[in-house]
Design a binder for these strands. Structure first.
Length: 514
RNA sequence: GUGGCUGUAGCUCAGCUGGCAGAGCGCCACACUGUGGAUGUGGUUGUCGUGGGUUCGAGCCCCAUCAGCCACCCCA
């Protein structure tokens, strides 16, 4: 009593019975949907080696991991499921015939600043479809997400489909180095929402050498570096050495001379990124404006790609996906294309998609996913295996359902009957009756507090318990019990062996009346 | 990580310019010693989020800290 209260850890939640039921219902519904498409369940550990996420997850996620050193191992609480599932696939399932369909559900952890619909521990439930690179696979997975939302009865949701391949192919051609490439991929959405100037400003922060297009002419000071671009490796090295000697820096004999020169050279040559970056930013600006129905987006995208003369395989894949979705009969009132879409996880290589909900706000998606064709190889898989998948945020689904009034009525009361002995002597008889009903599968609660009949009825009423069985000396003597239906106040004296049957009968009558 | 609002009974909240910590709901009991939802009566619960400071005196003012929410950021 005098002890101070111990608080719940920040950003995590207790799931109390009422909410638990609702969450359970959501999980059961999703699971049933997933199983109907042939996805098999698996459960995975909550802790993993941190390395699993360092390669391909993306800086934002990595920065927010629960990452710790324990007995000389570097471990973390998983921040998402896909990498874990792929790790498990590589560990245990590489002999399985492909394609392999898996679904999962479990807690993940991110050290974020908590607020509504954003917690440090939350539950992801999703699927992975391993071993199919076709658009048909992406379509199945999107269809599945869509179907799950419908099965839950949600109405006010909107799926947005994009494709990271369009931009990444473009950046590949420009030979932009990987750090800047992932920066640009990550900032596609910022480009769309905040505009080109915003992204340019951000870019300068990580790459100060960047000149934007306003500085058209090359200043004298840059001619030297431009010159370096034209030299081959050996020539450039000599030039650097010579330059350093001329300003009285002597590296000969220094152990790291080679390395220092190489590093200087890369730095100097970085400038070379500027024209590429400028072109990339322009391209992003144009492409990120394309969103809406396929009929509106695809022809425009075609024009832009043609004007930059880039390969259209990504766009073709997208078109194929659109066609496949139409085969599934998914209407475009809930789905749209958005070529400015980008995602926090870096492993996506193709189709990406998100699902938003009106009750949660634009920035809180219910679901996110996409295609990640390189992840298995990156994580050490035997073969280069393509895959696609998504994850729902269970807590967000719950909030979305609530915002649509879907949680109405509330969960059914667990207990169907309350058995109360009127006198202490009747207690054994009450226990016997309780056990009899339980054997029939009826959830039964026993009055263990020896309360008055009145209190018991009040309690049953508040708890929503449908039947009360009263047992007193008179009943016991006659081998009977009093069975009372709470809703109709109807009461019957029946033989103890027949309580269950009588209960069924009374329930039938009540249903008939209503 | 940045900025803002909030924190008083189990719950929702009131509490004036700094002067005895309150209401409603809930819970328990009784009215009614074997019959519920109404009503009445009584009872019950507080380190005023935590720690420090100012003051004769702090729920109220100041500082710090923790937590919840909101906007950024980002994600499911």
């Amino acid at each position: 009593m005098a002890n101070s209260k111990i608080e719940r850890v920040r950003g995590v939640n207790d799931v109390l019975p009422r909410e638990y039921r609702a969450m359970r219902h959501i999980q059961d519904t999703l699971q049933a949907t997933f199983e109907r498409f042939g996805y098999a369940p698996l459960e995975l550990p909550v802790i993993e080696h941190t390395d699993l996420y360092l390669k391909k997850s993306g800086e934002e996620i990595i920065a927010r991991m629960y990452d710790f050193q324990y007995r000389s191992r570097r471990l973390c609480l998983r921040p998402e499921m896909t990498a874990s599932v792929m790790r498990a696939y590589i560990d245990n399932l590489q002999n399985e015939p492909l394609p392999l369909r898996l679904h999962y559900s479990g807690p993940v952890f991110r050290y974020e600043k908590p607020q509504k619909a954003r917690y440090r521990q939350f539950t992801q439930m999703g699927v992975e479809l391993i071993g199919a690179s076709q658009a048909l696979a992406d379509a199945e997975v999107i269809r599945l997400a869509y179907g799950a939302l419908q099965a839950l009865g949600l109405k006010d949701f909107r799926a947005v489909i994009g494709h990271v391949g369009i931009l990444s192919r473009f950046l590949q051609n420009l030979k932009i180095d990987s750090r800047l490439r992932s920066f640009l991929l990550q900032n596609m959405e910022a480009m769309q929402k905040k505009g080109s100037a915003f992204v340019t400003e951000r870019l300068r922060q990580i790459y100060p050498a960047f000149e934007d297009s306003s500085a058209q002419t090359m200043p004298r000071s840059q001619r030297l570096t431009a010159l370096f671009q034209e030299m081959d490796e050996a020539e450039a090295r000599l030039a650097v050495l010579d330059f350093l000697q001329n300003i009285n820096i002597h590296l000969e004999g220094s152990r790291d001379a080679d390395e220092i020169i190489a590093r200087l050279l890369t730095k100097i040559r970085r400038r070379d990124q500027t024209p590429g970056l400028q072109s990339a930013l322009r391209f992003m600006d144009e492409i990120s404006r394309l969103s809406g129905s396929p009929a509106a987006v695809l022809p425009e995208a075609e024009k832009i790609l043609a004007s930059y003369a880039i390969d259209r395989s990504a766009l073709d894949a997208l078109r194929e996906l659109v066609r496949a979705l139409e085969h599934y009969g998914l209407g475009w009132e809930h789905i749209s294309l958005d070529l400015g879409l980008s995602r926090g996880l870096q492993y996506y290589t193709g189709t990406i998609f998100e699902v938003h909900h009106g009750g949660l706000g634009e920035e809180r998606q219910l679901c996110g996913g996409g295609r990640y064709d390189d992840l298995i190889a990156t994580l050490g898989g035997l073969n280069d295996i393509p895959a696609t998948g998504f994850a729902f945020g269970l807590e967000r689904l719950h909030l979305a359902l609530e915002s649509e009034g879907g949680a109405k009525g509330g969960p059914q009361p667990l207990v169907r009957a309350l058995i109360a002995a009127i006198d202490a002597q009747d207690f054994p008889y009450a226990v016997e009756t309780a056990e009899r009903l339980r054997a029939h599968g009826v959830p039964v609660e026993l009055d263990v507090r020896q309360r008055s009949v009145k209190s018991n009825l009040q309690y049953a009423d508040k708890r929503g318990i449908a039947f009360v069985v009263l047992i007193g000396p008179t009943e016991r003597a006659a081998g009977e019990v009093v069975l009372r239906a709470m809703d109709t106040r109807q009461e019957k004296r029946v033989r103890a062996e027949e309580v269950y049957a009588a209960m069924q009968q009374m329930r039938g009558e009540n249903d008939g009346q209503s």
